[in-house]
Amino acid sequence: MPDNVPDLAPDAGVVLTNEAIKARLACEDLVMTSIKLIDDGFAEQARPLFTNDAVHTANGTVFQGEGVTQMFAARQARGGVTRHCVTNLVFRQTSDTTATIWSICVVYGLSQDDESKRKIPHAVIDFTDSFERQSDGRWMITRREATAAE
C-alpha cells in the first residue's frame, strides 16, 4: 500500500448523507471525466477541472498552477492512443468542503510494433486525488498524485 493511503477500514461502510453522496458523485465524475478527456485526445480540456493553483505530481515530477496547464498541453500535443482503466475508487469526505479519492489505474497504450493494433498495459498507477468545494458549490481537483505502483 502506498505511504500516502491512510487506514481506510474504519470508515468503510459508513452510511453517507445525501450531501456526502452528492460530493462523492461529483468527485468521481471529475476523476473519470479528466481521464476520458485525456484518452479521447483532449487533455487540455481537462485543465478546467482543476483549481488554478492545483498541483499535479507524476512519479515525483511536480507541476503547479500554470505548469499543470503546460503539462496537459504537452500531453495533448504528444498524441498517441491510450486507455486509462480506473478502478478501486475509495472516497472519503474529509470536511464539508474537502474530499479525497484513492484509485488504481491501468494504462493501456497502442503497441507501435504490433500490426494488430492491440493495446498493451504499460503502467499501473496509484492515484490520489484531492478535491475542494468552491464557493459556487462545484467541486474541483486541487491535487493529483500519480505514482507508478511498485
Rank of each mutant, 00 (worst) to 15 (best):
Pro2Leu: 09
Asp3Gln: 15
Val5Pro: 01
Val5Ser: 08
Pro6Asn: 04
Asp7Asn: 15
Ala9Glu: 09
Ala9Ser: 12
Pro10Leu: 11
Ala12Pro: 00
Gly13Glu: 14
Gly13Asn: 10
Val14Tyr: 02
Val14His: 09
Val14Glu: 05
Leu16Asp: 03
Thr17Ala: 08
Glu19Cys: 00
Ala20Ile: 00
Ala20Arg: 11
Ala20Val: 03
Ile21Trp: 12
Ile21Cys: 07
Lys22Glu: 15
Ala23Thr: 06
Arg24Phe: 08
Arg24Gly: 01
Arg24Met: 13
Leu25Tyr: 13
Leu30Pro: 15
Met32Gln: 11
Thr33Lys: 06
Ser34Cys: 04
Leu37Asp: 05
Leu37His: 13
Ile38Asn: 03
Asp39His: 13
Asp39Gly: 09
Asp40Val: 02
Asp40Ile: 03
Asp40Lys: 10
Gly41Trp: 07
Phe42Ala: 07
Ala43Phe: 06
Gln45Ala: 12
Gln45Ile: 02
Pro48Arg: 09
Leu49Ile: 08
Phe50Met: 13
Thr51Cys: 10
Thr51Asn: 08
Asn52Gly: 14
Asn52Val: 15
Asn52Ile: 13
Asp53Thr: 11
Asp53Lys: 12
His56Cys: 07
His56Pro: 00
Thr57Ala: 08
Thr57Arg: 12
Thr61Cys: 05
Val62Leu: 11
Gln64Ala: 13
Gly65Asn: 14
Gly65Tyr: 08
Glu66Leu: 12
Gly67Met: 04
Gly67Ile: 00
Val68Thr: 13
Thr69Asp: 15
Thr69Leu: 08
Thr69His: 15
Met71Glu: 12
Phe72Met: 14
Ala73Asn: 06
Arg75Asp: 01
Arg75Glu: 03
Arg83Gln: 14
His84Tyr: 11
Cys85Glu: 02
Asn88Gly: 02
Leu89Ser: 12
Val90Trp: 11
Thr94Asn: 06
Ser95Val: 11
Asp96Thr: 03
Thr97Cys: 07
Thr97Phe: 06
Thr97Ile: 14
Thr98His: 13
Ala99Glu: 01
Thr100Asp: 11
Thr100Tyr: 02
Ile101Arg: 10
Ser103Trp: 07
Ser103Gly: 07
Ile104Lys: 13
Ile104Glu: 10
Cys105Gln: 03
Cys105Ala: 09
Cys105Leu: 04
Val106Thr: 15
Val107Asp: 00
Val107Tyr: 02
Tyr108Phe: 15
Tyr108Gln: 05
Tyr108Leu: 15
Leu110Asn: 09
Leu110Ser: 08
Ser111Pro: 09
Ser111Arg: 13
Gln112Ile: 05
Gln112Pro: 09
Ser116Phe: 05
Ser116His: 08
Lys117Asp: 14
Lys117Tyr: 09
Ile120Leu: 10
Pro121Thr: 03
Ala123Ser: 11
Asp126Gln: 07
Asp126Trp: 06
Asp126Pro: 01
Thr128Asp: 02
Asp129Phe: 07
Phe131Met: 07
Phe131Thr: 05
Glu132Asn: 09
Glu132Val: 15
Arg133Leu: 01
Arg133Gly: 00
Arg133His: 01
Ser135Trp: 02
Asp136Ala: 02
Asp136Ile: 03
Asp136Lys: 04
Arg138Val: 11
Met140Asp: 05
Met140Thr: 06
Ile141Glu: 10
Arg143Lys: 14
Arg143Met: 02
Arg144Ser: 05
Arg144Glu: 02
Arg144Ala: 01
Ala146Met: 08
Ala148Asn: 11
Ala148Ile: 06
Glu150Leu: 10
